[in-house]
Design a protein around this nucleic acid. Sequence first.
DNA 1: TTTATGCTTAACCTTGACGTTAATGTTAAT
DNA 2: ATTAACATTAACGTCAAGGTTAAGCATAAA
Lengths: 140, 140
Amino acid sequence: MIDKLYKIEQVSNITGLTKRAIRYYEDLDLIRPRRTESAYRLYTEEDIERIKRIVSLKESLAFNLAEIKQTLELEQEVENILFDGTASLATINSHIEMIRRQINLIEEKVGQLLATRKKFEDLLIRLRSLEEKIREEEAK
Amino acid sequence: MIDKLYKIEQVSNITGLTKRAIRYYEDLDLIRPRRTESAYRLYTEEDIERIKRIVSLKESLAFNLAEIKQTLELEQEVENILFDGTASLATINSHIEMIRRQINLIEEKVGQLLATRKKFEDLLIRLRSLEEKIREEEAK
DNA sequence: TTTATGCTTAACCTTGACGTTAATGTTAAT
DNA sequence: ATTAACATTAACGTCAAGGTTAAGCATAAA
């Protein structure tokens, strides 16, 4: 399997991005696929990995104001339920469910961020040992 | 200190948001300050806490494409340095510094997210005990 | 009392991150 | 050989999240 190449629609299916988004990332110089003679974009596995990282970095984030509003509203509702204490089991259970979903969402984001952090920590360790090596060489 | 009230500029200074942003959040119904007779907005401490939570929820996220690009570029540069192994100490140290900054940034975001998760976990626990209480009462 | 500063609404402007459409070229299958 | 299903660029549209400007009240200090 040496260097299989993909066209944009395949890449779109693999990554979940639209073709428009993929081309847009190229405009921003985030990726640089090669081209066929007739100018079709061709993506390597590496390109695709890179796109997946972009997606993951984006997803680890995004909470827009509408989502923030929902989050705050959910909190408020639950506090009201706890305060007056007379809610039905159905109401309570549906709110338990909603909170669980929020927590899962947060957990996912945290996971993405920790993966990114790990990447950088690895690089940091390797850079430090390179630094030491060079320092030793200079000492000679 | 019973219920001190703040005008919008003070709130802007306290929260770091522009007045425009604060008014915009009101348009979106994220906050509802009271008004003076001459229609000046008046914010309670509670309002301000709420605004701070909004800011924190927003910040815990946001990585735009430009930032993603920088991140990927930094990674690439470091990998090149590690690969050819002949960089100067100055180069290495400056890259160590940049990576450290990235890690700190990620750490901050993770911190925000974990604080939010804790809020929800507390609510979840309290909801569950309310549920049990109600279940017991219904059993009678 | 004037002046500076701050507040209000309203309306238009901007930027990022794409969506959509149009006009046209390429390739694969029948 | 034609058609269907892909691809290309270019250009305009859209939506969120504000920025900016204008025109006019409100209020505090000199």
